[in-house]
Amino acid sequence: MSRHHVSTQVNGRVYEREVESRLLLSDFLRHELGLTGTHVGCEHGVCGACTVLLDGQPVRSCLLFAVQADGRQLATVEGLALSSEEMHPMQNAFRDAHALQCGFCTAGILMSMVTFLEENRDPTEAEVRSALSGNLCRCTGYQHIVDAVLLTAERMRKRSA
């Protein structure tokens, strides 16, 4: 089968690899680049665990081929923290509000919700629930995730006020 050269920027760092055409972006991130923060759940676009940012927009990495990321910019959960000392406000809020149990869905939820809050700085609870509909969590019952997203929004508004 054909192999393709892929040069892609992930969290600001350039990676170059030769990949098989059928390699999913999710597997590329995990197995080729060792970035295992992105999780693989359903592999058909339903669960949202593998959500990453492609040129700033959340997408399912299990529904893209690695070869399609050539020349593009990706962001994964590994790049979310502001530094090795300081977590992203969303990550802190998830800890403070007890928004994760097993953590399998968390990376995808963080990547989806960070973009959501960029578009909507002051969401209602209903808007947060609707925005979360593309990410499945089987542990929490979502309540604490909703709380954490609202807490993040509140803290970020205060910080920028």
């Binding site: 949202g48 492609l54 959340p58 997408v59 399912r60 989806s112 925005a131 593309g134």
Partner: peptide, 9 residues
């Protein structure tokens, strides 16, 4: 149609 993550693509 599905979710924003799907509609982005």
């Amino acid at each position: 149609i599905a979710h924003p993550q799907i509609r982005n693509r």
